[in-house]
Every structure is written in C-alpha cells, then in structure tokens.
Design a protein around this nucleic acid. Structure first.
Lengths: 233, 233
DNA sequence: TTTTAAGTTTGTCGAAGCGCAAATCCAAAT
DNA sequence: ATTTGGATTTGCGCTTCGACAAACTTAAAA
C-alpha cells in the first residue's frame, strides 16, 4: 500500500475539523486506488464492503432498472464521499458507480463505518449533512420531473453540470468531463435524440457549443431562462 | 400542557431502545397537539423551530413550486418523525406539512435536536436510518418518473398507499384516509383528469372501487401487473 | 331542505416527445 | 492512412397525455 499523507484529506469537507494525528490514523486504514475512465467501482446489489472518498476525478452513480434502463442518480466530484451504504442503513450498494474520467479513490472497509462515526462526531455530522443535502436534491429532482417539460429539465441539467464542475475557457464554461447526449438523457428522463435536438437548437442560437462528449455553455443566463420555463417560440 | 406518558413513545421506532426514565425526560420537553384535518403543521420556507413525531393520523408533505404547483413528497404515518430539518442540516422547512386526517402530533423545540442526538445515540442512529430510507425512496421515485408511463406510476402509487396505510375491508384494501384524484396526480406528476380516467377504467375492470376521496384496491396483483408495465390492450 | 362548493367524470383536440430508421461524423485503434 | 465502432444528427409517424371545457355528483353548509 502506498503511503498516504494527511494533507490528502485535511481540507476535504467530510474530514474538516479533525486533528492531524487522527487523520493519519484514519488513512492508515484506507486504501488508495486509481480507476481509469469507464471502470466500475462498485455495482448495484453488490454487498457494501467499502465506502469511498473521491480524491480526484468524477464518478457517475447510475441506477439500473429491472429491464436494463439506466438513470443517472448523480455525479460525484472530488472531495465527496460515495458508496456510503452504511450511512443509509443498507448492506448492498443501491447503484453502480463508474469512473467518468480517470479517478483516484480512497476506500475504507465498511466494517469501520460505525467505529469512525462514533470516534469522530464531526465526521458523522458532516456526513449526515451530506446525506441530507442529497435527499434535498432528490426531492427537488422529483418536483422537476413532475412539473417541468423536457426542454427545461435538460437546460437545468446542463446548467447544473456547468456550475458544479465547469471549467472556464475562452468560449464559456466547459463541463470538464466527457458527457454524451445519452448521459444527459439518463439524467433527465428523456432520449438521446431529444437531447441532441435541443443541443442543436441551442447551438444555432449561440447558447452552447458542443462536440462529441463535450459541452460548453456560452450564454448561461439565456439557458437559465429556458430552464425557468419561458415557452417562447 | 397535558401529562405525557412514556408508553406513548416507548414502542415507536425512533425511540425504541431508550430506557423508560429517559423517555420521561424526553417527553418533559415535548408538546402534544391535535391538528384537525386540513390544518397546516408547518410551511415551506418557515424557520424550522421544531421537529415532530406523528402519534396518530396521517400527514401529507407537499412541495410547492415557484408558480404554485404542488407535488406530494410523501405521506407520514403514525410513529414516524417529520419536519426534521435539523437532521438534514436545514434551518427552514423544505415543504408544507398538512394533516390528511385529524392528527395527534408531538413536537420538540429544534434547539434540542443536537442535545438529543448526542445524548441518545440510538435515537440518532434510528433517525439517520430513516433519512437514508427516505433518500432511497426518493431515488426510486426519480427512476420511476424517468422510466415509467403515467399508468404505471399511478398504479404504483395506489398500491403503495394501500400497502402502507391500507385497512382490510369486505371489498378489499381501503386507503384509510381521504385522498382525491388531485392528490394522486400530485404524487405521480400527472393531472387529476388522467387519474380519474385510469381509476374509472380500473373500476370497470374490477381492480378497484372508488368513491369521492376513497379508494379500495380489490385486485392488488392485477394492479401490480399494470404497475410493472404490462402494456396490454 | 335547499344551496353551494368541492370533487369527479367524460369528451375533444392538439402538442410534446418517443420509437424507429438512416445517414453522417468523429476518434481511437490497427 | 485506413478502418471500425461509438456518438451524433435529423426526419417522420404515432402514441401518450395534457389542456380546455362542460356536465354531473356528492357532501357539507345554510
């Protein structure tokens, strides 16, 4: 196992406020691993042997339906915990986790969850705040799916990605990991065809630029107007 | 304030496993109140002054969109905590809570949340398990909204209500609180018209019986077939 | 009992967006 | 440089379901 330095996790939200020597102790139980793009970190239904911290990269969390359809539950950015089935009282992972780009991931044995949360109350607090935020997020998405049209939902998804993981470029804000039309359709409950049409339209109107698996938002506020439901012609 | 007996909450899930004398202490800080049907217990956006335990009745938790549309986030049954903004790291309630029938509700000042969770780890554990379950639930609903047609979603919603809160009668399983077509449409992201049409169809086929604000499921498994997506004629 | 309001049913119409299909484009691998 | 497979674009028909409208039913209020 490689040597892990406390600085790795010192200023990562879930571990913020924990003393340096304890960080070292925590890391002594952790395992670091690289996952190249596309590789699966864990699978839906699999026993939750570990929980994870994303040190670098982006992870796609995907739910699969009985008949094979996929729905993207969320994207994980670096500094976030994921696969924390223990925090939800589950003993199997409820979704797949796939590296959206090359990633560096820290993992701990699931059996340590209770020990850690008991020993580090700030970690516990931080974590449960995260779970709370994700619940909020999910509820908001339900409201969105129930009340907004596809066009608005797609605009929203693109905006959210740009805001959360965007990198400023000459053209605007670039979503900094490869994302296909299909991916966006799986985030918004539509088809890749519809997403393609929408992006084409927006590209013609100068709101976005896009190539294969790349999207740059050039006119965020105009997109926001669409997301808000302006049903203009 | 009325006298509250420890037996009130002794076998309610969140408080299970806490010693009797501690229950008494907990109750000394609680307030009991009756809410008649239709009354609002708290409102979306309001400062989260309290958290609640439903002792008897059913509560409807409703999200309101900027343009006034309503989406039912969930129904709370007796024995469940609700309005636990503190557990989610929020300082405002994220939804409205309305009594779906006459209810009896226990409430604690929100300021006690930290004290209580710290003093009673089993309460904390139980609570976070609840939050986890609700997150799961929300994710499942997102998948449903993304992949299933209205007919399936409505069938599912009716089945879930019947299973969770149903009362056996001569005709079948009766959802034991008043629920309108509109309510069901707000649970499933459709219109009351569509729900009405579906229920009419199902009534003709003998799967359900329904009157104003009453639904009885007579053929649960046939409904389940529809929920699963059999697109028969 | 009569009135009133909320809830429900049913019809018609039209649009949003999906399924299917086919052409094209692009990037990586050989 | 060529090949190959995945990703994207675009067209077309069709289904699902929402919007609008109007009649009707039921329960509670006056």
């Amino acid at each position: 196992m490689s040597l892990l330095d406390a600085s790795l996790i010192a200023d990562v939200p879930p571990f913020r406020g924990i003393e340096r020597e304890n960080l070292v102790a925590l890391l002594s139980n952790a395992r670091s691993e690289r996952y190249e793009i596309g590789r699966t970190i864990f699978s839906q239904g699999e026993a939750a042997h570990s929980f994870f911290l994303l040190l670098d990269g982006h992870i796609r969390v995907v739910k699969v339906t009985p008949d094979g359809e996929q729905v993207i539950a969320r994207y994980i950015s670096s500094g976030e915990l994921f696969g924390i089935a223990q925090a939800l009282g589950l003993d199997c992972y409820p979704a797949n986790a796939v590296a959206a780009v090359d990633c560096v991931v820290l993992s701990w044995p699931g059996s340590l969850w209770t020990t850690i949360t008991e020993k580090y109350p700030t970690f516990a607090t931080n974590t449960y705040r995260t779970v709370g935020a994700r619940l909020q997020d999910a509820q908001d998405r339900i409201v969105e799916m129930a009340t907004e049209r596809v066009e608005q939902r797609v605009a929203n998804a693109v905006l959210k990605l740009a805001n959360q993981t965007g990198r400023k470029t000459d053209d605007g804000i670039l979503i900094d990991f490869p994302i296909s039309r299909q991916d966006i359709s799986e985030m918004t409950g539509t088809t890749l065809h519809t997403v393609s049409r929408l992006l084409s339209t927006w590209e013609n109107e100068g709101l976005v630029k896009s190539q294969r698996k790349k999207i740059t938002v050039t006119e965020g506020h105009k997109l926001a107007v669409i997301a808000a439901g302006k049903s203009d012609s």
